[in-house]
Computed example of a mutant assay.
Amino acid sequence: MKITVKELRLILTVDNLDELIHFYRDTVGLETSKEWHEETGNGIILDAGRASLELIDSKHAARIDQIEVGERVSGPVRLALRVTERIPEATETLIEWGATSVAPPTTAPWSDVARVQAPDGMQITLFATSTLEDK
């Protein structure tokens, strides 16, 4: 027997919620699905459209880091966002709004890519094409 998953959600607990809402909603362009402000805490759910869970072993993570950055730098969680803009322009936009460059745009075997670090420390790979596009 198996279950049926209707949504994949990555949950980040952060100390600078307002800054990151601005970054992910207003700069990255994720749309608000739900937002709450309560005595027990604040939060927001941002819709990323299509989500996927990529599971890789540490050997493959090291290979990806080597191709995208030149050395092993990512932790156990990294976001990857397929963007419609050209990778250099998308990278510059995120940097203008608080991200820092981890590695400049490059061409990987699977796509044009760039790696940035969001204000919360999350590493983000921007990519142009996906094997999921035609599915």
Results as ranks from 00 to 15, higher is better:
residue 22 H to P: 08
residue 54 E to G: 12
residue 66 Q to Y: 08
residue 21 I to Q: 00
residue 30 L to A: 05
residue 39 E to W: 06
residue 110 W to Q: 01
residue 103 A to K: 00
residue 4 T to V: 10
residue 6 K to A: 11
residue 68 E to K: 01
residue 22 H to I: 08
residue 91 T to N: 04
residue 120 D to M: 07
residue 12 L to F: 00
residue 67 I to S: 02
residue 74 S to V: 03
residue 114 A to S: 13
residue 109 P to R: 01
residue 13 T to H: 14
residue 28 V to I: 14
residue 64 I to P: 00
residue 103 A to S: 05
residue 53 L to I: 02
residue 18 D to I: 12
residue 99 A to V: 06
residue 62 A to I: 12
residue 112 D to L: 02
residue 83 V to N: 09
residue 94 L to I: 06
residue 85 E to P: 03
residue 102 V to P: 01
residue 95 I to T: 09
residue 112 D to V: 01
residue 10 L to Y: 09
residue 72 R to M: 07
residue 123 Q to T: 05
residue 9 R to Q: 15
residue 26 D to R: 07
residue 92 E to A: 12
residue 45 I to H: 09
residue 43 G to S: 06
residue 45 I to Y: 09
residue 54 E to D: 07
residue 105 P to A: 06
residue 75 G to N: 07
residue 38 E to T: 07
residue 27 T to E: 15
residue 34 K to A: 11
residue 112 D to G: 01
residue 130 S to H: 01
residue 83 V to L: 10
residue 19 E to A: 10
residue 89 E to R: 11
residue 96 E to V: 10
residue 102 V to C: 01
residue 44 I to W: 02
residue 62 A to C: 11
residue 85 E to G: 07
residue 21 I to H: 01
residue 58 S to P: 06
residue 11 I to H: 03
residue 127 F to G: 00
residue 12 L to E: 00
residue 121 G to C: 04
residue 25 R to W: 02
residue 50 R to Q: 10
residue 2 K to M: 13
residue 126 L to T: 03
residue 69 V to A: 04
residue 63 R to C: 09
residue 44 I to S: 03
residue 113 V to E: 00
residue 51 A to S: 06
